[in-house]
Design a binder for these strands. Sequence first.
DNA 1: TTCCTGAGCGCCCAGATCAAG
DNA 2: ACTTGATCTGGGCGCTCAGGA
Lengths: 342, 342
Amino acid sequence: MSGRPTLRTVAAKAGVSHQTVSRVVNGDPTVTDGIRDKVLSAMRVLDYRPSAGARALASGRTEVVGVVLPHNPGFAFSNDHLIRLVGGADQELAARGYGLLLSTREVPDDAASAHRRFTRRRQVDGLLVEAGAGGEALPALRSAGYPTVVIGYTDEDVYRVHPDDEGGAYAVTQHLLALGHRRIGVVNGPVENRLAMAARLRGLRRAFADARRTIPDDLVEHGDFTAASGYAAAGRLMTRPEPPTAIFAFNDSMAFGAMRWLREHGRALPTDVSVAGFDDTTAAELVDPALTSVSLHSADVGRLAARILLDVLDGRPPAQRENVTPSTLEVRASTAPPPMPN
Amino acid sequence: MSGRPTLRTVAAKAGVSHQTVSRVVNGDPTVTDGIRDKVLSAMRVLDYRPSAGARALASGRTEVVGVVLPHNPGFAFSNDHLIRLVGGADQELAARGYGLLLSTREVPDDAASAHRRFTRRRQVDGLLVEAGAGGEALPALRSAGYPTVVIGYTDEDVYRVHPDDEGGAYAVTQHLLALGHRRIGVVNGPVENRLAMAARLRGLRRAFADARRTIPDDLVEHGDFTAASGYAAAGRLMTRPEPPTAIFAFNDSMAFGAMRWLREHGRALPTDVSVAGFDDTTAAELVDPALTSVSLHSADVGRLAARILLDVLDGRPPAQRENVTPSTLEVRASTAPPPMPN
DNA sequence: TTCCTGAGCGCCCAGATCAAG
DNA sequence: ACTTGATCTGGGCGCTCAGGA
């Protein structure tokens, strides 16, 4: 006597069997129109709502996917990226009637905790895992039989989706070369993201090669994605005997740090030195000069990852494991031709 | 023959009844130690995992709460705020064994859609709703019997949690007054957020009153939380006969817009004009000069909202409907004493 | 074809049972 | 024989699926 109507309550009211009501609820096309109307109006009158729990129990599917995100404030991934990722995934999942069970994870912590929250209770049909949040747990997930799509880069042989980091870096480099820059300083990212960083370096090298220019190999510095590390890297680059005329930082935060170093040391932006970033965070267009950066279109990444997972769940797995979404160069005021040598 | 072990499988292996296994799983203290050990080892050997669906069906509770967020890129709420909110809520929910089902919502859209995704299928025990994402649907939710906690401001008589906007605005104003500013221009936010904006105005007025200063009532402009509107508002403020010496924008984006206007019109920051914002987004410390702003400690807001919802679900509802989390002033380089009149 | 019937899915709850004090 | 505490038994939560009418 919980009060809520069930399939059978509705069936009794509509004068049909519970199974017929089930067919109506699930949009079975073999239901006669007259019966369907009767059932629908009974459902409306009783304010019937199906029970996800009962359905999950009987069918073995929950129609919910788990999303595992890293959650380490101010490090590695921008909040902009994460929230757009989730928004895109949610949009795609909602369109197909799926729910999104979220688990954030403090990144240095017990390895498998976030996934286990889902899989230990069998509340999800599959998983979307941000690479930084749990690449190391993938074998366990696979053996547990959970279809998984990784968002980002991984060595594991799983479905994965990532933005076109190589293409983005290519576009930045090409843009800087076209402006006339020859000595381009690079602020590389941390080893935790070595696969994404490798892709960006490939794009950089390819752009130099296509322009038939030799890449100055003494101009790569490392940072850890924080503004402070970008500041320090800019200092190291600019105090070399032959400093660069442009700095390409592998994320926006480091680019902002580099801009700060340059301003504090009397360089005019962008006339003395150009700066470009990566990720196109909201801050990029708010700083002065606005930062040229690569937009990853994070919502598209989330959408595609969700679509692939749903396709796998529907039994039509995509042909390729690795899927790439386009990224685009956003040219803003922070990049300009290098100063004339005189 | 799905393969997965059930309570009864474990029971058979351990030589006890299924109900005893259930008691072990649920931590019933009346289980004898010897039996508990036998059951636990059987569970381990069989890799038993409880089925959330079956449990939900039998108990009527899902141990999942729904979180409804607005999702309108670049407007009204910063991504920083949202993601920290969710992170805090998730942390609290996870600690009590609850899951977090997320639904993002494009804000101008069909009113109740996001909540209905949860409630129509009865997959959640309660809801956390961002005020901007669904205040208008609250009566419907309440009548449907879903315990709900609103994050933000609302006129409805529901549990709600919001940061101390009034205190934050008080702190900013007091800070500016202490620096010597008398004419403080205000860039107010949009009417959609009128309750939060009213709280900030109260803080502003109280600070003037406590300092025994009269508030210049001709220095309030409106914006819509975008940088462009902050830019325009700054223009209107600074071209008055007696322009302000400081601008207090009711969010960071508008503050950035104001900074841009000031720079483009030859004002030195902060020596000619001070600027303060609200929300303390990541961009605040990346711009130059770094922006003085009010930190809302969004994760704390999310945590408290989750805790209140869980308390309601546990049958021990808090005494008060309205709950406020502290916000703090982050003083940075964008605020300084006004120029000496000469 | 369209609809119906019956048997579970894996769990929780209530009441029955059984060992001890 | 009469509590008290630990364990067991049966029924049913609301749905889907297979097979029959």
